[in-house]
Design a protein around this nucleic acid. Structure first.
Lengths: 232, 232
DNA sequence: CTAATTTTGTGCTGTAAAACATAATTTTAG
DNA sequence: CTAAAATTATGTTTTACAGCACAAAATTAG
């Protein structure tokens, strides 16, 4: 993808951040922007590395995750186009505490954080953008702590399915989740073993709450799923 | 406590934020600042309420927590003087997702968030202060998600004891934790039932890793506690 | 100071979810 | 196209931890 095409993609999209910039700032970003293509499951950055770029997802799907005990990972956040990530550690002046990888073949842009910071200094709107994003993410993480530690398996899985719907939406049929992830990823999103994710998913299918077809998950009864997420 | 005294307290302390302000800004804050005293266990703000103030802890200890399922709370963060809290929800433009209460009799200042935002607009350093704080907290919450979901009881409790040490430090003996919290609070910090917190604490005492005397907890072997926290 | 209430401490029991095992199916690689 | 590897599926066993019960001790209230 060449830069002209990129400019088109960004400006056509609802790239929130982009709209906050004046033409000189846009030029600076366009000059510094480097496009990267990642294959399925390819690592974008890894825990403990030093952060350097603001990553911008243009196409594809990305997961932010943290490796835990005994090779069990926890998915912390899901990214869709056009969203930004990878900046927290730089702002905190820490190495990354989590890793990022592509769920599917994805196109990303990398902007040096050093440039981002210089632009923040000059553009208060940009500062507000990050304050707002960080605040929302922090609220999300705090809520996740309680959901993942206190809900039972059924509740956690139902919640995970609703998170997938909120992030990636439905296909044109208005029911099939627009993401095809492995059972292992689904387990890592809802803090359980792969076997339990598979088992519980089967139970939901038996209960006619969802329909399974390979990696396709069709939500039959969203209200019931929300109920399970809340009480079950 | 009257305003003159307050100004003295703040300026003498290492109040990070205060140092970022010019004299006109300091005057504005001093004028808007309202002192509140809270009794032990008194609620400062409650989940679902609309945020309004930046809270500044001048004296005492405060916990940020979230009520979960079946009356089981999770402590998310601990506050010590002079730290700021209560701003996240306002920045995110959401109601509070967590509550705050005083561990012990505490003195706090409330500054209208509306003023804080106006000051951020004029003072980039203030914006950076919040970007930095939010970023650090988000990293902490993400790490906590994995610790609380994947570590076993012993690991979680050992971790909680180290968190207490990092936040409130030791008494002059260099070993006794400078906070006296109920077993229930300790359980709510480490995601377990009160009975299990008591039991596991007794085991640590048997193993000579700590010494218990009522609510006093003396750390005998910090290295061992760190090892338990890491490997469980 | 005494009674009432809350907190702490321990044992016993039940169960949710992990661990393990083993096919069946699907995907990937040569 | 076929073999190897990975993923999905399901049954069985084990265990970490919650739930419950009940003293003992400490704190609070009248």
């Amino acid at each position: 993808m060449i830069k002209q095409a990129l400019e088109k993609v960004i400006s056509e999209d609802l790239a929130e951040l982009w709209k906050l910039l004046d033409s000189e700032e846009k030029r600076q970003v366009t000059d510094a922007f480097v496009i990267h293509n990642f294959k399925k499951n390819e690592i974008i950055y890894h825990e403990n590395e030093e952060p350097e770029y603001l990553w911008c997802l243009l196409k594809g799907k990305v997961k932010i995750f943290k490796d835990g005990i005994g090779g069990r990972a926890q998915i912390l956040r899901l990214i869709r186009p056009v969203q930004y990530f990878g900046y927290r550690a730089y702002f905190a002046n820490e190495p990354y505490v989590s890793s990022a990888s592509a769920f599917e073949p994805s196109t990303l842009g990398a902007i040096p954080m050093e440039l981002v910071c210089r632009m923040i200094e000059k553009n208060m709107k940009l500062a507000w953008f990050f304050i707002h994003e960080l605040s929302r993410n922090l609220g999300g993480s705090d809520t996740k702590i309680v959901n993942l530690t206190q809900k039972h398996i059924r509740g956690r899985l139902a919640e995970a399915l609703m998170v997938l719907k909120d992030n990636y939406g439905y296909e044109d049929d208005g029911a099939t989740l627009r993401i095809y992830m492995s059972r292992e990823d689904l387990a890592n999103l809802s803090n359980m073993t792969t076997a339990n994710a598979i088992r519980t998913l089967s139970t939901f299918a038996e209960e006619k709450v969802i329909v399974l077809d390979g990696r396709c998950i069709k939500i039959l009864n969203e209200a019931q799923l929300k109920r399970i997420s809340k009480y079950g």
